[in-house]
Design a binder for these strands. Structure first.
Lengths: 211, 211
DNA sequence: GGATGTGAATGTCTTCACAGCT
DNA sequence: AGCTGTGAAGACATTCACATCC
């Protein structure tokens, strides 16, 4: 299959969200233009994004809402549920565990690890915090393929190496560090301070432009 | 000034982080190649990114670490501190307030709003949660230009409109909704479920490839 | 010698524009 | 008529490669 750009995949994910809104409202069909305005892009972009995977629309009519939604779920691999391993039972981990958006889309945080003795063994958001050292014993042979790292920089690389050895193939990393992993492993970084810096850059440009 | 791509700005932000590590370690100079390997890019990319803003290096030598760090802080608008308004005193808001990475870089969450009567008035992470309805009274004339939205979709657009009216110019949005704002306002979305979906897509591709 | 800075070449993504269905 | 699907064109981003300077 041809390689699709990440921006394209991100947009597909957005389109799916809009389609689900239409689905709930019972709207039967939708045009590329309607998806485009909601997503802040153009109708040509929407059609091109979809065209990488096939032709799902009817000319003159648009796209069948439930049909396209199902197709996108298939493309994005969302037809199945995923067990997700959470590393770090801190505030951020708690927020993520509580966050409904994950469960809604089939991402279930089924286990959480921490290395702080004050946390290990405690009940926490409906789970029991497990000791970090149990990771290998628990995960070897487990079907979990996705992990979320919600821990500080220190130790993040070490835990990553262990997760990879246990068969984890995709990591959502909140630690402020560039993880090094084998090519076969996918890592997505969420770096909140960096996002604010992009905003700061934009603000500074505004200031300079207005002088 | 020429328009710089967002990916370029994001990389500059990364380089700055690496430079700060070098700074702490007392390393006097660094080459584009060293920054590149840490950032997972190429030396040519590093030099090109920097070249949009000037020539900061010495041929044959590399870049002066504190000098380049200062220059990047200036470019990114990080020489000053920012007051940040937080909307939403929930788990996510709490995690963000506690998160050291913001303060470290001069982003200070100075006030938090919520509309849940059970939260308003309470002490919370060193702040007192203020009633959402106070927003206009507090913010009009305040220097705060950045807001973080850590609330559910419902109400996010309404609060956004009010923030914009109060002079907020940049918004970091954690709500799962595409905010509509005037062109002059900068919005960055952090959509954690979407990140997981990108991972899901990658996993599905791996599965398909191995069949 | 060693590393920068940068035009030119290449590669990638987006937009255009229109033929082709419904 | 209306909207899709898609080559072709255009815009943008990355990589190459080398003259330039320390």
């Amino acid at each position: 299959m041809a390689k699709i750009s990440e921006s394209s995949v991100r947009r597909l994910s957005l389109y799916l969200r809009f389609l689900e809104e239409f689905e709930q409202r019972g709207t039967p069909t939708v045009s590329s233009g309607e998806l485009a305005t909601r997503g802040g892009t153009t109708s040509a972009q929407v059609r091109k994004d979809l065209s990488f995977f096939g032709s799902f629309g009817k000319r003159g009519l648009g796209y069948d809402v439930p049909g396209l939604a199902a197709k996108l779920r298939d493309i994005l691999g969302l037809k199945r549920a995923y067990d997700v391993v959470l590393i770090g039972a801190g505030k951020l981990g708690g927020a993520l565990t509580q966050y409904g958006g994950f469960r809604e889309r089939g991402f279930n945080i089924t286990v959480v690890y921490d290395r702080d003795p004050g946390r290990v063994g405690r009940r926490w958001n409906g789970l029991v915090v497990r000791d970090d050292s149990q990771l290998e014993r628990d995960l070897t042979g487990s079907p979990a393929k996705i992990a979320i790292l919600a821990i500080p920089e220190t130790g993040a690389q070490e835990v990553t190496d262990r997760l990879v050895r246990c068969g984890v193939q995709a990591i959502l990393n909140f630690a402020n560090i560039q993880l090094s992993v084998p090519d076969s492993i996918t890592v997505k970084n969420v770096n909140m301070a960096l996002e604010l810096e992009v905003l700061s850059y934009a603000l500074r440009n505004q200031r300079l432009a207005s002088e």
